[in-house]
Design a binder for these strands. Structure first.
Lengths: 231, 231
DNA sequence: CAGTATCCGATGCGATACTG
DNA sequence: CAGTATCGCATCGGATACTG
């Protein structure tokens, strides 16, 4: 919504006034995914300016969708969804499923974003098939903007997974290298690790075990299972 | 969305680019409700300018959501939802249900719009409890803008219901008069005909039968049944 | 870390009028 | 009926820098 109210009593119109402002649905998706801190939200919505993020959070708070609370430790602020906000989960989910089904994949694969991809991947890793020790996996994107070519995921049982854009200095258990489009396609469920490796688009070097079950420990996008309806 | 693309591969972001432009969700709601002709869409989205309506329809056509086809008779153009468009039905429905549950009713009742109300009511009338002859019902809104105070619904079995803003000249079977807020509240399921009449906010004069079962033949908003969570 | 302040440009879109 | 054309303003929001 660019300007003003629709002045319509219809609930669809009223909901649209709240939800259809720029970045709002994307922000809510990140909140529903679990981010609560300002800078975590920034990482999940990298192209949104901090000024606008701050403004949107305030608006959503006014609408009763978000609540700003002092976090337990350190007294840092956190943004939580209210009950009304949590009930947006099916709305966002339908949005995403519809997008996955009906928006051409080549359009999706034109909108690559390393930082967002890594941030999303970090969240969905499945630790169960991984070794029960700390593992460090290095991702190298041949075609990413300089300064964003190399990333590290440090996975340790019991801890939150760390995403680093600077070398954390640990021994690397697995080196993954591919172009950004390939990794994104895998994440979106349009491609598989096996096929990407066989076709030479992806290279895995290091721990055999980690390499062979990468498709398993690498969780996919929440929408990856939705069947695509268009080429 | 005010400007440009989100440049995010996430399906939520991509869907938002298509759906979260001004008026788009409201327009889609009207199309899902069954309107196909340009001027019918205008009536359902009265405050949207024809230029913008035309533009949105073209955009939706490009996205494969809408298809412009020559209508059977007269060769007039009609806008139909594609399969992708029809699959937006649950999205819109969730939007509306969420709005009905969580947006304060006093906000809804600040956004009164006679024309839209009558157009929506016309669509949802339930003919079964009505006499099996032509009935004309006059609605008088004491507080509507001048020129929009009086409306007529002409209901005839077998025909589409006609909505007139000029006196069609038939004998009136039932006179309904109330303020706009009362009728809107009834339509939205926040109020009942009986209660409005008893409290003096609504007057019914004419055919006893028609008056007594008005709550039945007057269909309500598709979202009226959704339980409100806030005062 | 968690935001604010400021500035300015692009453009979305509202209003109105007009056409085939 | 079914749109198009034009104009101009408001405002949204991107970029950048700064603060407690």
């Amino acid at each position: 919504m660019t300007q003003g109210s629709y002045k319509q009593f219809c609930p669809v119109a009223m909901a649209a006034e709240i939800l259809c402002t720029r970045w709002t649905m994307v922000l809510l998706r990140e909140m529903l995914a679990g981010s609560t801190r300002f800078n975590d939200l920034r990482r999940g919505v990298p192209r949104m300016s901090p000024a606008l993020l701050s403004q949107r959070l305030k608006e959503l708070e006014q609408w009763g969708v978000v609540k700003r609370v002092k976090g337990g430790e350190g007294g840092l602020y956190e943004y939580h969804l209210t009950t009304a906000g949590q009930e947006l989960q099916p709305v966002i989910e339908h949005f995403g499923c519809w997008g996955q089904r009906w928006i051409e994949s080549k359009v999706s694969l034109d909108n690559l974003d390393v930082q967002l991809l890594m941030w999303d991947m970090r969240r969905s890793l499945d630790l169960k098939p991984m070794p029960r020790k700390r593992s460090t996996i290095q991702f190298q994107y041949t075609d990413a903007p300089s300064g964003q070519r190399t990333w590290w995921l440090v996975v340790a049982p019991g801890n939150d997974t760390d995403l680093c854009s600077l070398n954390p200095g640990f021994d690397i258990d697995l080196y993954v290298s591919s172009d950004l489009k390939t990794m994104t396609a895998i994440w979106m469920g349009m491609e598989t690790v096996r096929h990407a490796v066989n076709s030479g688009c992806m290279k895995l070097v290091g721990d055999k075990q980690l390499a062979s079950n990468m498709q398993t420990w690498l969780g996919l996008s929440p929408f990856a299972k939705e069947k695509r309806m268009v080429a």
